[in-house]
Structures are given as structure tokens and as C-alpha cells.
Design a protein around this nucleic acid. Sequence first.
DNA 1: GGCTCCAAGTTGAAAGTGCAACTAACTAGT
DNA 2: ACTAGTTAGTTGCACTTTCAACTTGGAGCC
Lengths: 151, 151
Amino acid sequence: MATRWLTQEQQRWWRAYLLGTAALQEALNRQLETDAEISLSEYEILVRLSEAPQRTVRMSELAASVMHSRSRLTHTVSRMERRGLVERQACEDDGRGINCVLTPIGFDLLDRTAPGHVEAVRTHLVDLLTDEEFRVLGHVMEKIAAGPQAD
Amino acid sequence: MATRWLTQEQQRWWRAYLLGTAALQEALNRQLETDAEISLSEYEILVRLSEAPQRTVRMSELAASVMHSRSRLTHTVSRMERRGLVERQACEDDGRGINCVLTPIGFDLLDRTAPGHVEAVRTHLVDLLTDEEFRVLGHVMEKIAAGPQAD
DNA sequence: GGCTCCAAGTTGAAAGTGCAACTAACTAGT
DNA sequence: ACTAGTTAGTTGCACTTTCAACTTGGAGCC
């Protein structure tokens, strides 16, 4: 079958996508790294934990919620544990499971870091767009995250 | 000054953004890696080179065009050079400059890889959206790539 | 020419990530 | 109870990316 190439315009949007996401990623990581010595993915982990009951989430759930491989999460959590930001606990009802718990130190860090991070998200993303544009972006991203439906 | 937190809805879009970009990145990388043992960023480098006159671009320009640090590009190009995909040449008019040139082997690889990649971009992005949505996405991404204007 | 400053590119080490192999524990079928 | 298959999580190694330090060459100024 002949390849359905992208049109000129589509190529332009696609390239913009690559550059835009790279730029944003870069900006947010830099802000978090300089202000809190933490990466965006670590920050996301702190957020997920802070929102959970008991500030506790199982490793596999946590991995899924931030779209990391289990291996990657293991490494990242180990580093964060060394810094005292989180702790591991055995899981009551499943002998294989490990719960990841946010420590007071981790919560404090999140607390202190959040304002600067939110400000950066505004500066580099939200404030650049109209409400409608942001809404469409969100919508579009939900579709992309869901991925091609395997029917 | 009080932090301007995100609204519930904005948080939702923001989270969708994080998940969506991660999912797409993952999908495209996987496709390229299994089909051509190449990463998305290496693919992008091949594309930029293939489009340039003489299939040649200076290292610093190349780095800027794919939003990589100079250091990162140096390492990546070294790896690609080892595989025979690109070559380095001294720059005529600037003793410091290095030109990166696409080799026939590199061009062939790109040629063979492009259809599968484009197909993946369609499957995981373009075909999931209406034309209008994609247009808005592109527009939005151009703004994000441009970043906050420092006035 | 001889300064100083900046830009281009590389280097090596440290940190992050992916992959495959591994252990341990749950599940199901018999 | 036993076995096979599956899921949770970790580990070690290879590979990738970042960061700071370094080398080299150009630009401007006196």
C-alpha cells in the first residue's frame, strides 16, 4: 500500500508539536531542577502520592498513573527514598505488593515547590493560550493518551 | 503574591497533556526502535539533514533545529557516525565549525524507515483528531515553542 | 600584534532510563 | 496439594542524557 504522507501543513504542525513539547519539557524541568533539585517526573510522583488516601499508592498503580515503566519507577523511588522523600511499605493484602508512602519531608518539599512550578506551567503554557485553545489542547491530549482504539 | 492555582478543569487538561505526550513519545520511539534500531531524536536528525542543501548542516544549527544541547548532539552524532549514518566534515568558512553530512547509508535508512514512521504518527496522532483539532494543536504548539515573549 | 571576550564543539564522569533476567507471590486447573 | 501461568517488583548492565570543564578559533578593541 502506498504511504499516506503528511501534507505540507500537517508536517508543519507535527514539527511544531515536537519542538513545543521539547521546549516545555525543558523549561519545566529546568525550573524544578534549579529551585528544588527535582525533576518533573519526580514532582509528578509527589503529586500523585499527595492526592492519595494515606498519601500511599502501590508501586504498579503509581507507575501507571505517571506512565513510567515499573523498572523506571523502582529506580526513581529508590533515589527519592534515599533523599527521605518517600518510603516503601509492605502491602497488607498482597504479599508481592509494595506501597509507596509520601513522608512529611516529601510533602514539605512539594508544598514549597508547588507555587513556583504552577507559575512556570502558567508562564510557559496556560498563559500563552486562550481558554478555548487550552480546552481543545486538553481534549486532544486525552484522545492521544487513550491511543488508537483497537477495534 | 498569592499563587494563582490551576482550576480543576485546567489541572485536568494539564495532566492530560503530560500523559498524552508521554504516550505518544513512547509509541513512536517503540516503533522506530523495533523497526530500525533508531530513536525518534536520531530519526529527526536524519530528517533535518535530508532536507538541507548538500544534506549537510552545521552541528550548532542542527542542535538548535531539534532542540538538543550541543553536548547531546555531539554524543548522538558520534554514535550515528559509528554506524555510518552520518559523517563529520570541517567547515570551510569557520575553523570552529563542523558540518554534519548525511551518508548514502543514512539516507537509505531514512528512506526505508519513513513510511512506517509516518504511519505510526498517523495512527497515534493525526488520525485520532479532526483536521480542525490538529490545526489548533499545531497552532498552540507553535506558541509554546516560541515561549513566553520577554517584553 | 596582543589583549579580552565569546562561540563551537568535545570530553569524561555522573545521573537517568530501558531491557532482559530474575525472585517471589498470587491464581487457576486438575 | 501440585503444577503451570501470571503479576509485582527488583536488579544489573548497557545505553542515553546532562553537567561542568576544557580546547580551539573568531571578533573587537587598544
